[in-house]
Simulated scan of single mutants.
Amino acid sequence: MSLRIENAQPRQVVCVRVGGPWNETVPEGFRAILPWAKEQSLSYEEALVFYWDDPAQTPVDVLRADVALTIDEDTPVNIDGTGFRKEVVPGGLYAVWHTIVRDGAFAKAWDELYAAINASSYTPGRGVCFEKYLCDGASGSWEIEIWQSVEAKIPASA
């Protein structure tokens, strides 16, 4: 587990919105978008999941996430009638937490990220946060990076 700060470039993605308990709906999103990408012979660079709600403040049945695949901006993609969207992930300053999730402990990984950010000279920003998957989870564990937009902390006045 390690934290790094990265100034990221914007990313072009194709994504599908899912709603409800993330442990159920995120896999459903992947089951929808991955076969479609294969059928389209769409090569993608990264598999990402964007989270739009705070699970401590949002009822589980209305949690929202976008399951996304990054693509080259010049890649032609026909999403007509699919329910998928093309979006651009904003560039900017991100805290990146690299970890391995075992036994489905994704919430623990996010807690560790925010503890590391709070101990740094940064604070979470008002931008996006997402998971980047570095493996397919076939072993039962997930190697991931969690990306959270950040801003430099404003020093307290003396």
Rank of each mutant, 00 (worst) to 15 (best):
D61I: 02
D74P: 00
A109L: 02
S43C: 06
A109V: 03
S120T: 13
V77F: 00
Q148Y: 01
E6H: 11
L69Q: 09
R102H: 12
P27E: 08
Q57V: 00
G92I: 03
V89D: 00
R11G: 00
P76M: 01
A37C: 06
V128W: 00
G140N: 03
P59G: 01
V89P: 00
T25H: 10
S139R: 09
N78L: 05
S139I: 05
K108H: 10
D111K: 10
G92V: 03
G19N: 12
V77G: 00
G20L: 09
D74Y: 04
Y122E: 06
D72E: 06
Y133G: 06
V67C: 14
W52E: 09
G91Y: 08
F106S: 06
N7R: 13
A47P: 05
V60R: 14
T25K: 15
T82G: 06
G140Q: 04
E143S: 14
R85N: 02
R11Q: 15
P35T: 09
A32V: 07
L63T: 02
T123F: 07
I100H: 05
T82I: 04
R11L: 15
S2Q: 14
Y122V: 04
G91N: 07
L63E: 05
D54Y: 03
N23K: 08
W142M: 12
D74A: 13
T82C: 05
S121A: 15
F50N: 00
R4C: 06
T70Q: 12
R17L: 15
S120N: 09
I117S: 03
R64S: 06
Y122Q: 10
N7Q: 14
V62S: 15
A119S: 14
N78R: 08
L42A: 06
K153M: 00
G137M: 09
W36G: 05
L63C: 07
T75S: 09
A152Q: 14
V14D: 04
F50R: 02
Q9K: 13
D53C: 01
A156N: 11
I33N: 12
G137L: 08
L134Y: 11
I71Y: 03
G127R: 07
G29Y: 10
Y44K: 03
A32C: 04
A107P: 02
V89Y: 00
E24K: 13
